[in-house]
């Protein structure tokens, strides 16, 4: 909404100001994408659990819910539940190493970062190709073994009858498949397409992956 026309009389000042801002941005970590703290946690800027959970009982840690917002990702190990709400045409990709019980989940909105270089530089997790690459990276860094990893893909709903215009869901799903294949992750389960909204969760206590749709019985992918 901040769409004031650029000041044409003083292009130089704008350029310098932008450069200063960019330098300042590089000096401090970028703010979290969307409304989620998942990214901040991921970068070690927030404790990996809310304070009450870390001082609380083991039960609370087991049940801790880490909500993955739009254009964000999160990991967990051994306990806790990763959950993302309201996947329309967006995609959630879940990686799980059942041996070490490391799980990771991302929620991205658009397929292809090469379509929008400016935005993909500031918000890489918005785009499927970059989000999945980062997901794989944090998954291994957290101790997940790519050779044991199982991948799951959820979301990618579409509005019918509009062809390519509103088929971001279909393109998002294809990008997930292609990128996971390129990174050599085996897709063990998926629920994509259709016109429904979905919520996906991974419970690291049990390894259960559940997809829920408002008004329908939840399905288990794992």
């Amino acid at each position: 909404m901040n769409d004031r026309p650029p000041d044409r009389r003083r292009p130089r000042l704008t350029v310098i100001r932008d450069r200063i801002r960019r330098l300042a941005d590089q000096a401090r970590p970028a703010p979290p994408a969307g409304s989620s703290f998942a990214v901040l946690r991921e970068r070690g800027l927030l404790p990996s659990q809310p304070p009450e959970a870390s001082t609380g009982s083991a039960q609370e840690v087991r049940n801790e819910r880490i909500v993955v917002g739009v254009n964000a990702l999160a990991t967990a190990r051994g306990a806790g539940v990763l959950i993302t709400y309201g996947l329309g045409s967006c995609i959630a990709v879940i990686l799980l190493d059942p041996n070490s019980r490391v799980g990771a989940m991302c929620h991205y909105m658009l397929p292809d970062s090469t379509q929008d270089p400016r935005r993909s530089a500031s918000q890489p997790l918005m785009f499927g190709d970059m989000a999945i690459a980062q997901l794989a990276e944090v998954f291994t860094r957290r101790g997940g073994d790519p050779r044991n990893a199982e991948a799951y893909v959820v979301g990618g709903a579409s509005l019918s009858g509009m062809g390519d215009l509103f088929d971001i869901g279909g393109r998002n799903a294809r990008m997930a498949r292609v990128t996971l294949e390129r990174l050599r992750y085996h897709v063990r389960g998926h629920e994509v397409g259709d016109r429904t909204s979905r919520t996906a969760s991974l419970d690291l206590n049990t390894g259960a992956i559940v997809v829920a749709t408002p008004g329908l019985a939840p399905r288990r992918l794992r």
Binding site: V70, Y85, G86, L87, G88, S89, C90, M109, G155, A157, S158, L159, S160, G161, M162, L165, F166, I168, G169, R195, T196, S197, T213, P214, G215
Partner: peptide, 20 residues
Amino acid sequence: DLVAMQIGVAAGSDGLWYRS
């Protein structure tokens, strides 16, 4: 409305069941 639905953050049981 279609764009907001497509983002889907807060879609309900009616999902994307609309015609454009």
